[in-house]
Simulated assay, not measured.
Amino acid sequence: MAQKKEISAKLKAALDFGPLLVFFVAFFLFKDHPVELWGQSYGGFVLATAVFVPVLVASMAALWLLTGHLAAMQIATLVLVVVFGGLSIWFNDPRFFKMKPTLIYMLFAGLLGFGLWRRKPWLQLVMDGAIPMQPAGWTILTKRLVVFFLFLAVANEVIWRNFSDTVWVNFKTFGLTILLMGFFAAQAPLFSRYGVEGDKDEK
């Protein structure tokens, strides 16, 4: 198995969040300028999706080439983006792509919940073992993430079904990112209490 290589935090952030920012910019560039192709009119959302999908594929390919590794969450996200983004482009229907966050969060919640039932620490695989914690900490974090992912799935459904494309794009680009960052920031006491390094220091 190839050894994972480290890259700079700035480069990793650019590869992780760059495609999403490209989608955001493309949407607002094309929002009021639909394009006629093969007898159909493609609006800003579908055009932005058509830009986003290959950019994300290129970004993940670059990340894999540079590090020799992709996390399970990244692979699952990539597959769903290609499938549902492709459906939105093929059928000229934004709804497929808008459903993608709902499905991926439900998938993660289901897998983590199944892991809890089996008493398997699958969260360590999903998070790529980035946080050194005791088993009890992983169990608590997993339970919280299951609830949080279900909340995100419901929030995405409510927003895409009841609000405009512009509202959803802002929610997808900034809202979900802020919520995810806020969730993990709120877990600081958990990481401090169950962190392996802290546990060793106490001993």
Rank of each mutant, 00 (worst) to 15 (best):
M60S: 12
W64Y: 15
A58I: 07
L47W: 04
V57L: 08
A71T: 15
L56G: 10
F52Q: 10
F52E: 10
L70H: 06
A50Y: 02
T67S: 12
L56F: 13
A61E: 04
A62V: 00
L47S: 01
L70C: 09
Y42E: 05
H69C: 12
S41Q: 15
M60T: 10
H69R: 15
A48Y: 06
W64M: 10
A58D: 00
L47V: 03
G68P: 14
V51S: 07
L56C: 13
V46Q: 04
W64P: 05
P54W: 04
L66Y: 03
F45L: 08
P54A: 10
L56D: 13
M60D: 09
W64S: 05
A48S: 09
A61C: 09
G44C: 03
G68I: 10
V53Q: 08
S41H: 13
L63F: 00
A50R: 01
F52N: 11
G43V: 06
T49W: 00
A62F: 00
G44N: 02
S41A: 13
S59Q: 05
L66F: 06
S41V: 12
V46T: 10
S41F: 11
V55A: 08
L70D: 13
V55T: 06
V55I: 12
A58S: 06
Y42W: 14
G44K: 04
V53T: 07
A61R: 04
A48V: 12
W64K: 08
G43Q: 08
G44V: 06
F45S: 02
V55Q: 01
S59C: 07
L47F: 01
A50M: 04
G43S: 08
H69G: 13
S59A: 11
P54D: 04
Y42C: 09
V53C: 10
L65C: 13
H69D: 12
L47K: 04
W64E: 09
G43P: 11
W64F: 15
H69W: 12
V51A: 11
G68K: 12
A48W: 07
W64V: 00
V57A: 04
S59H: 03
G68A: 14
A71F: 13
A62M: 00
S59T: 03
V55W: 00
L66N: 03
T49K: 03
G44F: 02
G44R: 06
L63P: 01
L66C: 04
A62P: 00
S41Y: 12
Y42K: 14
A58L: 10
T49I: 07
M60W: 11
G43Y: 09
T67C: 11
L63Y: 02
V55M: 06
A71I: 13
F52D: 09
V51I: 12
V55N: 01
L65N: 14
G68M: 13
L56V: 09
L66Q: 06
L70V: 11
A71K: 15
H69P: 11
M60L: 13
F52P: 12
A48N: 07
A50K: 00
L47R: 00
A48F: 07
S59Y: 01
M60R: 13
A48D: 02
W64T: 01
A62Q: 00
G68Y: 14
L63T: 01
V51H: 05
Y42M: 11
H69A: 12
V51C: 13
A48C: 08
